[in-house]
């Protein structure tokens, strides 16, 4: 296992996006505490994997956040927290953290995203070392501090974590005619349709 570098279409070439998935994480409370304490060594997007349905779903939120980063219109303190709230189809930021971020003693599987990009010097003030993190150093750091089993970030592995009841609720997919008209036997057809609606929800937030 190693950190995966995500290739996302139409993202600036000097922006690097790394991803990892950890199953049955035992120290979610510790990870959450690092975020709350603004520990500069934990500049990550930590996502509760149960709300993710696929890589495409994940990519939609990352793309959105990178786009706001480029435009200089981040809604939260940094691109990592913007990725977490980027998953939300609604504008309620604290609710979005609760739903898509970590919840100690509830979150089991954790999807981690790390974005490395050329920062303005002013943005670097909190970080003591000037060396940008590499995939190797990031992987080292994650496996040292996350008590869980790393698995590849594939659609198959993500599907194992998905809590569809939550996804349906958060993205308002219950009783939607566009989904209901598809034969219940056509599970893949329904899944695709819902993925389309989830991605649209992410893309349209704020319009």
């Amino acid at each position: 296992m190693a950190l995966e570098t995500l290739q996302i279409e139409h993202v600036p070439s000097d922006h690097h996006v790394y991803a990892a998935l950890f199953r049955d994480v035992q120290n979610v409370d510790f990870l959450q505490a690092q975020l709350i304490g603004k520990n500069p060594e934990f500049e990550y997007a930590f996502i509760d994997a149960s709300v993710l349905i696929s890589r495409t779903h994940l990519f939609a939120a990352i793309f959105r956040a990178l786009n706001t980063l480029t435009e200089g219109t981040l809604q939260t303190p940094n691109v990592h927290s913007d990725i977490v709230i980027g998953l939300s189809p609604t504008n309620n930021i604290s609710e979005s953290y609760r739903r898509y971020g970590l919840t100690p003693f509830k979150t089991r599987d954790v999807l981690v995203i790390k974005v490395v990009y050329p920062k303005l010097s002013s943005e670097n003030s909190t970080i003591s070392s000037s060396e940008p993190p590499t995939p190797e150093s990031t992987w080292q750091h994650l496996t040292t501090h996350i008590q869980g089993t790393p698995v590849p970030v594939t659609d198959e592995e993500l599907a194992k974590s998905t809590d569809w009841a939550k996804v349906r609720k958060y993205y308002k997919l219950n009783g939607v005619p566009g989904v209901e008209r598809i034969d219940t036997a056509d599970e893949e057809g329904r899944r695709r349709e819902m993925e389309g609606l989830v991605v649209s929800g992410i893309a349209l937030r704020g319009l």
Binding site: P177, G178, E180, R181, G196, L197, S200, G201, A203, L204
Partner: peptide, 20 residues
């Protein structure tokens, strides 16, 4: 974009929105 999303939810055959 909003019209496309609305149609899609209602089951009217239109393209899904990926990003904007």
């Amino acid at each position: 974009a909003k019209v496309l999303e609305r149609c899609r939810r209602e089951g009217v055959p239109v393209p899904a929105v990926y990003a904007q």
